[in-house]
Amino acid sequence: MPAHAFRNALPADAARCYEIEITAYEGDEAATLAKIATRIAQYPQGFLILEADDHVVGFINCGCAHDVVMSDEAFKELVGHAPEAPNVVIMSVVVDPAHQGNGYSTVLMNEFVRRMKALGKQTIHLMCKEQHVALYERMGYTYVRPSPSDHGGMAWHEMVMAL
């Protein structure tokens, strides 16, 4: 694995993160540039960037909630986000397809979990497609249920990790 580093996102990262987002997610699944910029502006400590050889190659972003409703589309724009809330809701976990297969998603998730624990968070929630359920289980998540969300016209599965 090439030399890598972690940092919180800056407003200037929005365009590069959007490039990665649209290569990794299909159609309406991808967050817009405006949503990514909003997430960076409103909760940079929940927007973790992975750099390899001084290039942004992946990221995780999230919001926090007292009551988690995974199918709440407005939350993806951080409507209802409460930075002090104990429950983390991941919105994107993305590695540039050109850099996939290097173990980056695992190191990115491990660092994200470490940082959320350090912030005193209690749970991390995410939704994924069926083919990623086993990957997240290996990372320590527990399967919850098929999601009522049809975000992007896709079937999603809810998962949770207790910290």
Rank of each mutant, 00 (worst) to 15 (best):
P2F: 15
P2A: 15
A3R: 15
H4D: 12
R7V: 12
N8Q: 15
N8D: 15
A12Y: 10
A12L: 15
A15W: 13
A15M: 14
R16I: 08
C17P: 00
Y18V: 07
E19N: 07
I20H: 01
I20K: 00
I22A: 06
T23G: 06
T23L: 14
Y25D: 02
G27E: 10
A30Q: 04
A30Y: 04
A31W: 01
K35G: 10
I36R: 06
I36D: 02
A37V: 05
A41P: 05
Q42C: 14
P44H: 08
G46H: 05
F47T: 04
L48V: 03
L50C: 07
E51G: 02
E51V: 04
A52C: 11
D53V: 12
D54C: 11
V56Y: 07
V56L: 08
V57P: 00
V57I: 14
V57R: 01
G58N: 07
G58M: 08
C62A: 13
G63V: 12
C64W: 09
C64M: 10
H66K: 15
M70F: 09
M70L: 14
M70W: 06
S71D: 15
D72T: 10
E73T: 13
A74W: 08
K76E: 14
K76T: 13
L78M: 12
V79C: 12
P83M: 12
A85E: 05
P86W: 03
P86T: 10
P86R: 09
N87T: 15
V88E: 03
V89R: 02
V89Q: 04
M91W: 11
S92G: 09
P97S: 02
A98G: 07
Q100H: 02
G101W: 04
N102G: 04
G103L: 02
Y104W: 06
Y104K: 00
Y104E: 00
S105T: 09
L108G: 00
M109K: 00
M109L: 10
N110K: 15
F112L: 08
V113M: 06
K117T: 05
G120N: 03
H125L: 01
L126I: 00
L126C: 01
M127T: 03
M127L: 04
H132R: 09
H132L: 13
V133N: 02
V133M: 04
V133Y: 01
V133R: 01
A134N: 05
A134S: 13
Y136A: 05
Y136M: 06
E137Q: 15
M139A: 14
Y141V: 07
T142F: 13
T142M: 12
Y143S: 02
Y143E: 07
V144K: 12
R145P: 00
P148L: 00
G153R: 05
M154H: 11
M154W: 05
H157Y: 07
H157P: 00
V160H: 03
M161R: 08
A162I: 12
A162M: 11
L163F: 07
